[in-house]
Write a protein that binds this DNA or RNA. Structure first.
Lengths: 127, 127
DNA sequence: CAAGTATATACCGTGTTTGGTATACAAGAA
DNA sequence: TTCTTGTATACCAAACACGGTATATACTTG
């Protein structure tokens, strides 16, 4: 499996991770909530564990799985350069549209949504 | 291929995306920089294009590929709940260590690094 | 037109991953 | 011990993605 990206490529594994975000869960609880055969759950948990996404503790005959942050932070770190890219991209688009507003101001044929400080903020970067 | 996560699971495709972050590139330029056979580059670019990661414009017999932000933003959005998780995790760890400091203060056997407002900030969330 | 350059696609072989089923293993309960 | 619950693993079959090679397409230049 090797890389964290291959691990999260599998939809059921992403579902398991999303379940674990709220709290730790046993294999049986995951099995029920995702309506997925138990061996499948165990196999995916094995992949997740070996990649460092989760860890488990034994509680009698149950095993409780919980999230570990490192691999997800690795993905977050990989995303960083692209975040810079798309915030620049949004800025460039805004400058472009501002110029369009100016040049089409006289014709006033196409009405664009209000622009300015009260427009919607994007979630990515506030800086 | 379907999902953006499967698309970025492939190392060569991530390499291509990283190349395009600085500026748009032709197929031949990507081929040379990644030392990868041309059909492989074209095939990966096709996958990236169909998933919306890149778009291309024709420049004579070349095709220039550039990044599109949406799919990467989708990955970023998927990461959001986990970011909340691991910042909480860090906070809990810090509280735990603070309690340890208190209870071991008298024994003063283990010296821990200085804690407080001047400690290193984590990259995830500034808020 | 022919030749050359740049890119895309078709085809094939192969390794890997996934789901399914059965079974093994472990720990409590009776 | 035997039974039951909870979880892991072994095995198999099907699907699929990837690399490689050859070829097709498109545009440019002579």
């Amino acid at each position: 499996m090797e890389s964290v990206f291959e691990v999260i490529a599998e939809p059921n594994r992403r579902a398991i991770l999303s379940l674990l975000v709220s709290s730790q869960q046993s294999v049986g609880e995951i099995e029920r909530q995702l309506a997925m055969p138990q061996p499948a759950v165990s196999k995916h948990l094995r992949v997740l564990r070996e990649a460092g996404f989760v860890e488990s503790t034994v509680a009698a005959q149950r095993r409780l799985y919980r999230l570990k942050p490192e691999p997800l932070q690795e993905i977050d770190a990989w995303l960083a350069p692209f975040r810079r890219f798309w915030s620049a991209h949004v800025d460039a688009l805004e400058r472009h549209l501002d110029r369009m507003d100016q040049s089409t101001a006289t014709k006033s044929k196409t009405a664009r949504k209000r622009r300015g400080p009260n427009r919607e903020r994007h979630k990515g970067e506030t800086k």
